[in-house]
Design a protein around this nucleic acid. Structure first.
Lengths: 204, 204
DNA sequence: TTTCTGAATAATCAACAAACTATTCATTCT
DNA sequence: AGAATGAATAGTTTGTTGATTATTCAGAAA
């Protein structure tokens, strides 16, 4: 019985409880009982309850990141299409997750209020994906950017509204998607169009 | 003693109380006493306490709007400079207001949670300013936009983060300003620069 | 009649106690 | 020794009670 296998046993038990009863209504004693151990023993594997939640979120997020990274460098799609895929995938994922599942919303808000550095970690990872997208664009000769890290930050700033959609508005998914398309167009073509390129068309 | 003059007497009294003791700690009875009237009589002039707060906010905001509108059509400044002036003025105003004054923050959050339509009204007004800016740009031959209302909406979407800065981040004003400059650059020049134009330089 | 009052009402808030639960750690296994 | 327990602690949540206060409205002034 390795330390890691116990950790994942705990995570699995917590995942079931959290998604069934919610984070707040799940006690450490219950998680421990599900793992046939004492509450105190949990602390040999996790510093606290929140860290279990974080482990769940982080596991889930990591698999999502892989999907994003593939989209960022997808062959057959030009830079703008890849960016669009990225932002839309992200929007849909969080929207659906938080929309249909109040438990997920509870966990998201607990983590983001108690562990703001976790949200920063996620943002930093997404920036890596954006940079990868731009590196790929450069490699393919689609376009080059002087300061990719900064451009990535600015893309995040401008699309903030779509990151935790239900935190900042009560728009439906179709409305959000339509708006994201508009913002994307703004970012790609600028306020005053310089050429005929469209969001869904060819990159410059 | 016209109805309007009584209304503004009430608003003035409430303004003093709210800014001194806060919205929550001010009672209708106190406001009434300050106006030498009975609590019940307030309701002949305002439907409720929140409406008094709204009247204060709206008065304040209206005078701010005038400033914005002037900036939007300022002679001697090109379109990008005018947009920059607009967004920066707005950012600084809300930042300073909410930063130094916890009372203002209390009122802002009460109003925006109990009266979400008020926030929409403000957004709609700012869109009018943005459209005015673009109309002026067209008049001057700086650039034209097919759907100005939509462009205005997208500018708002992309600059959401700077609208209620302390609600969504704990960045300092200089950081926020720097970031807003970056987003502005993104919106003006697009992700892949088409020409040498800079944010603080000439419009296309 | 129209304008206002202020007591009555209903809703919200504050304070306090009881109950619960995350976390620790002295002690018991193995 | 190291691994695990579970009672003790400390912090938080929950529930209750007693004000406080927004709002109403029957009636008094004007």
């Amino acid at each position: 019985m390795t330390k890691d296998s116990v950790r994942s046993q705990i995570v699995e038990a917590a995942k079931k409880r959290f998604s069934h009863f919610g984070y707040g209504k799940t006690t450490m004693a219950e998680i421990a009982a599900d793992c046939s151990m004492s509450p105190g023993n949990l602390y040999r594997f996790f510093p606290g309850k929140l860290d279990i939640a974080e482990a769940i979120a982080s596991e889930d997020y990591t698999s999502h990141l892989e999907v994003l990274m593939k989209l960022a460098v997808a062959p057959k799609r030009n830079a703008v299409e890849r960016l669009r895929d990225l932002l839309f995938t992200e929007l849909r994922r969080t929207y659906n997750k938080l929309e249909k599942d109040p438990r997920a919303l509870e966990m998201a808000s607990v983590i983001s209020s108690e562990r703001p550095e976790f949200a920063n970690w996620m943002l930093a990872n997404e920036r890596k994906v954006l940079v990868a997208l731009m590196d790929e664009a450069e490699r393919r000769g689609e376009f080059t950017s002087e300061d990719k890290e900064k451009t990535a930050e600015m893309i995040q700033s401008a699309t903030m509204k779509f990151r935790y959609p239900q935190l900042w508005s009560k728009l439906t998914l179709p409305k959000l998607e339509h708006e994201l398309d508009g913002v994307l167009d703004l970012m790609v073509n600028g306020i005053c169009p310089h050429h005929a390129g469209q969001v869904t068309g060819e990159a410059a």
